[in-house]
Design a protein around this nucleic acid. Structure first.
Ligand SMILES: [Mn+2]
Ligand SMILES: [Mn+2]
Ligand SMILES: [Zn+2]
Ligand SMILES: [Zn+2]
Lengths: 144, 144
DNA sequence: GGTGGTTTTGCAACATAGTAGCATTTGCGC
DNA sequence: GCGCAAATGCTACTATGTTGCAAAACCACC
């Protein structure tokens, strides 16, 4: 796609996963890296439009799936029925999230994963723990 | 609905929330109370059919919404895009959940809510913490 | 820089989960 | 029982995500 010799952070990330550098992937990753909150498929679609990047609904779904499968991005099922996507700027996705119950926005709380000292009932194998904090974000909390 | 003088646990729970005792509400609550895992709208619909309880898709959605709003049941957004419902047999919904990533089933881990000692960035107001443990359930873990 | 095979895209059709409006029925306080 | 608010059943609709397949874009290799 791009022919210059200095790969962008997005391009590097994609290449590191063995994926092809394509218009949509780079643009989506740019958007996610620049966002300070998780975004829905639809919000990313609008952001692509704003950038003048032509794209297809299905391609965007597949691009997001690929980013998640590759471990570059993460996916969160919200209370509304839209999944939200984000990238952790630094390293892998091992952190908690804050979900504002008023405006619905979801932010990554990097560097915040509490020691979950749980003793599971016998037979359960724990792979990972997912912590979501609910409440009001700074913007929404102001009025209270 | 029922005319006997001994209200069932389901009936008591419904009445305690100021709701009317209806066929669907009682049957759904009975199902949720008997289930040892969270159930989807669809699974509950099948269970109602099995019980011979005629019902409408939309009514079931509204019944479940009412149970959640009343605080009797809880709703979880899963990785598949179906919400799962459950009731905590004892008291309010303050516990973690285990999600089996292989078979997709979700169980309540009652009496297991870790002290989440997180210090949020300034401005965030914490209402509640939601903890979901991912891994393999006893059934699915056997083969590993 | 061109070529060829593989990956990715675009499009159309489909599937699933949930919602809205409104007339009819039902629970229940009286 | 009566009356009225609450709940239900229908129909239609929306939002979100998926599948199959042909066309286009990447890029390793020369
Ligand atoms: Mn995150
Ligand atoms: Mn639970
Ligand atoms: Zn907010
Ligand atoms: Zn399992």
């Amino acid at each position: 796609m791009s022919d210059h010799t200095h790969p962008s952070p997005a391009e590097s990330l994609i290449a590191a996963q063995g994926g092809r550098i394509t218009r949509t992937r780079v643009a989506v990753l740019d958007i996610l890296l620049a966002a300070e909150q998780s975004l829905t498929h639809d919000e990313i679609g609008v952001a692509l439009d704003d950038k003048g990047i032509k794209h297809d609904r299905v391609t965007l779904y597949r691009t997001l799936d690929w980013l998640v499968e590759s471990g570059v991005a993460h996916k969160m099922a919200g209370d509304d029925r839209a999944r939200r996507f984000g990238v952790a700027a630094s390293g892998p996705h091992e952190h908690a999230h804050f979900h504002c119950d008023r405006c619905g926005k979801v932010v990554c709380l990097e560097g915040l994963q509490p020691a979950v000292a749980v003793n599971l009932p016998g037979g359960y194998q724990l792979d990972r723990a997912e912590l979501v904090l609910h409440g009001a974000c700074p913007t929404c909390g102001k009025g209270a």
